[in-house]
């Protein structure tokens, strides 16, 4: 199947006030097939949001692209002009953000906010057509009575309902790829279950999904493939079953073990010592080395290469040196 998106050895960093550039994302490679959902998981500061913003070309001013390619439907988005990017963004490629409270304009009805996306990319549509397409979109995200709610303002909606409006806005042009950056973090669990249910349904109907989250449970719920990120590197990637049933990287293993689940024992939780490093304290070698229980001499000197450790499972760790067959 064709890939909708492909990150090829993509790196980026930040320029500080003195002009010095520190690297954050280092050699990120992964792809998403048509109709599939990929989850990017990691803790705060691991660069998962920067990955999605890079694809949307919405990086902050201080960000510097340091190499690699991001192919979207065969075109390198890093080489597109701003104008070309504008025709893709919101049409073929759209995004849902974390905070449904701040992402909507409080003084414009939600009908016109959703309709705006449609009109910008399809100016030929008549007013009636726009209205009926907006009603369809609201209906498909489970907002009851859409004809009436269309003319309401954001403050008349609850948090869960606003996130539904955001999803409706993102899918109105039937994008090839929908990026969801922590779409349910601000919501209650029962509302989160509703939103995940909608996203699972939409995934089948329209294009692919890139889910950015810190919650491994959400990934297990929605995605088929997983990328685990740590300190700007994609340290492990593979199918859901490969990553969850047979995690290889010590960080992935530690992370999985440290989450209390509904079936956990009462004993002490296994933990990963230390904290996530920030951009300014990255050291040469593996970035997980100083928290890793299996750290070897080479780990602190050289960054590990990607190794295939299964048909659909890649890991970057010196523990598996010698297994598999070289670069991926």
């Amino acid at each position: 199947m064709a890939n909708v998106v492909e990150f090829k050895n993509y790196s980026m960093g930040f320029r500080d006030d003195d002009g010095a550039v520190s690297n954050l994302l280092d050699g990120i490679s992964f792809s998403i097939e048509e109709g599939k959902a990929l989850g990017v998981v990691g803790e705060s500061g691991c660069g998962k949001s920067m990955t999605s913003l890079s694809l949307m070309r919405l990086l902050p001013d201080a960000a510097v692209v340091q190499g690699g390619e991001i192919l979207f439907e065969g075109k390198d988005v890093l080489k597109l002009s701003d104008k070309e990017m504008q025709t893709i963004r919101g049409d073929r490629l759209s995004m849902i953000f974390q905070e449904p409270m701040t992402a909507l304009n409080p003084v414009i009805t939600i009908g016109s906010q959703i309709g705006e996306c449609l009109v910008l990319h399809h100016p030929e549509l008549s007013k009636e057509e726009v209205r009926s397409r907006v009603i369809d979109a609201l209906d498909s995200v489970g907002i009851s009575n859409p004809e009436r709610r269309l003319d309401q303002y954001p403050h008349e909606f609850s948090g869960g309902m606003r996130q539904r409006v955001m999803i409706a806005m993102a899918i109105i042009n039937h994008p090839a790829l929908l990026i969801a950056d922590e779409p349910t973090t601000a919501l209650d669990v029962t509302i989160q279950a509703q939103i995940l249910d909608i996203m699972k349904r939409l995934k089948g109907e329209s294009g692919s999904l890139l889910m950015i989250t810190h919650n491994l449970g959400i990934v297990a719920e929605v995605c088929e493939e997983v990328v685990v990120m740590y300190a700007g590197r994609a340290i492990e990637r593979g199918t859901l079953a490969a990553i969850f049933d047979n995690p290889m990287h010590p960080y992935t293993r530690g992370l999985m073990a440290s989450i209390p689940t509904m079936h956990s024992d009462k004993g002490p939780l296994p933990t990963i010592p230390g904290t996530v490093p920030t951009v300014y304290d990255f050291k040469p070698g593996c970035r997980f080395a100083d928290r890793c229980p299996h750290c070897k001499d080479i780990c602190t000197r050289e960054a590990p290469q990607y190794r295939w450790v299964g048909d659909d499972h890649i890991v970057a760790c010196w523990l598996y040196e010698g297994e598999g067959d070289g670069n991926a």
Binding site: V189, T190, Q192, A193, L196, N215, L216, G217, I218, V219, A220, E221, L240, A241, F244, D245, M256, I259, T261, M262
Partner: peptide, 8 residues
């Protein structure tokens, strides 16, 4: 039931 469990 609403809690997404991190397992396959």
């Amino acid at each position: 039931s609403a809690i997404p469990e991190p397992s396959t």
